[in-house]
Design a protein around this nucleic acid. Structure first.
Length: 377
DNA sequence: CCCTCGATCAC
DNA sequence: CCTCATATCGAGGG
């Protein structure tokens, strides 16, 4: 795997994982401090019916009543019945602004910096701390305070010898916490975690492990990659066996532009007809195309995703012969694929709940005419 | 090796 | 009750 990095170097690393606390809801508190004292819930409204959609994030006041991310809005409302609470729609551009400012501060501290998402990043602190975990704790404090002073944003920080340990550690004390797990403590730290604490292990993987009689991290560490490979695949098996021993060779990598651009929407229930499908496809393509051309990129792979009423996902993709930066080509191909999907899978129109368009295999074409097809070589 | 499709995760 | 965007993996077919 990372042949160019000696074990010695890996063995000395100090990695921070920084996680902004209850991020969207905290952003809302920053501009509306009165939200701090009452439950506030930031929601993704699907528009399908009144209050259909899910909770994106909520503040800790709301969590006291059992409200959680990904919970249906209606359920959240029932939990906060008769309680003074605020429900807000997401405002992504605003959250991205705050994120950008905070990330800039973090980036300036460190050596290698990897932004994982709008509210999460890794930073390598090996050199600055001279591989000393006591020093690291001081840096973590300073970083946390700095972000709080400049952005008014609290975060939780995990410090560990690799990405895996720091990521789990950042979740231990929240909000506004710091958890340091030294190299020496890493093995016992991970042994005391639950299997689902390992990032990448969700309900499905946990279930598979359970069916193999594995329900603790030490159970995994007693297995070989070979024993897990059939059930989980080689990559996951390798990752898990290493993880259960607090080993993670994955490197911090500076992320460039995204590898795919997509847009997915929920359809309104009462308008299932071809015209609506066409309109939705056009609007999805417009949105994706706008994003693509803002980034000055062309695409080669187009994927259409349909989510049916029974929540089953169906996706079809198509590789173009050449890279394209043409809206017409995106639009035409999207419509073509959607029609194929409906025909081939005998999907009736009123059976489609959500529809998405994703482009991938992207290529920079800045400086070239983005309105005509771009021919490689 | 490339293509397509689906699954999974986690936000 | 059930969002949205992205990354990654694997299988199966060429």
């Amino acid at each position: 795997m990372n042949e160019n990095i000696s074990l010695n170097e890996i063995g000395k690393k100090i990695i921070f994982h920084i996680d902004f606390d209850y991020f969207y809801a905290q952003c809302e508190e920053i501009r509306k401090p009165e939200l701090r004292n009452i439950p506030s819930v930031v929601c993704v409204y699907s528009g399908r019916e009144e209050d259909s959609g899910v909770v994106s994030t909520c503040n800790y006041e709301a969590r006291k009543y059992g409200v959680k991310a990904a919970m249906p809005i209606r359920l959240a409302k029932s939990k906060l019945k008769d309680i003074e609470a605020i429900f807000l729609p997401t405002d992504m551009p605003y959250y991205h602004d705050i994120s950008r400012n905070a990330m800039r501060i973090i980036e300036n501290y460190g050596e290698l910096f990897e932004q994982v998402s709008v509210d999460e990043c890794y930073v390598d602190f090996t050199k600055i701390t001279n591989s000393d975990f006591d020093d690291a704790k001081i840096f973590a404090n300073s970083l946390q305070k700095n972000i709080k002073d400049k952005i008014k944003l609290t975060c939780s920080i995990g410090v560990g010898p690799n990405k895996l340990i720091s990521k789990i550690a950042s979740g231990v004390k929240k909000p506004n916490g710091i958890t340091v797990v030294s190299r020496e403590d890493a093995k016992s730290f991970i042994s005391n975690c639950k299997i689902e604490d390992i990032p990448g292990v969700g309900p499905k993987t946990a279930k598979k492990l359970e069916s193999l009689g594995i329900d603790s991290i030490s159970d995994i560490s007693n297995k070989s990659i070979f024993e897990l490979r059939d059930a989980l695949g080689y990559k996951t098996a390798t990752f898990l066996v290493n993880a259960s021993n607090a080993i993670d060779y994955s490197q911090i990598k500076v992320r460039g532009t995204s590898k795919q651009i997509g847009k997915i929407v929920t359809l309104k229930k009462d308008i299932a007809n071809f015209e609506q499908i066409n309109l939705t496809a056009a609007s999805l393509c417009t949105s994706v195309y706008e994003n693509l051309s803002n980034k000055g990129q062309a695409f080669r792979i187009l994927t259409i995703i349909l989510i049916l009423e029974n929540l089953q996902h169906v996706s079809f993709s198509k590789s173009l012969k050449l890279y394209s930066a043409s809206f017409d080509e995106l639009h035409k191909n999207s419509l073509f694929i959607i029609k194929e999907m409906i025909n081939n899978n005998s999907i009736s129109l009123d059976n489609i709940r959500r529809m998405g368009v994703v482009v991938s295999d992207l290529k920079d074409i800045s400086g070239q005419d983005s309105l005509v097809n771009y021919f490689e070589n």
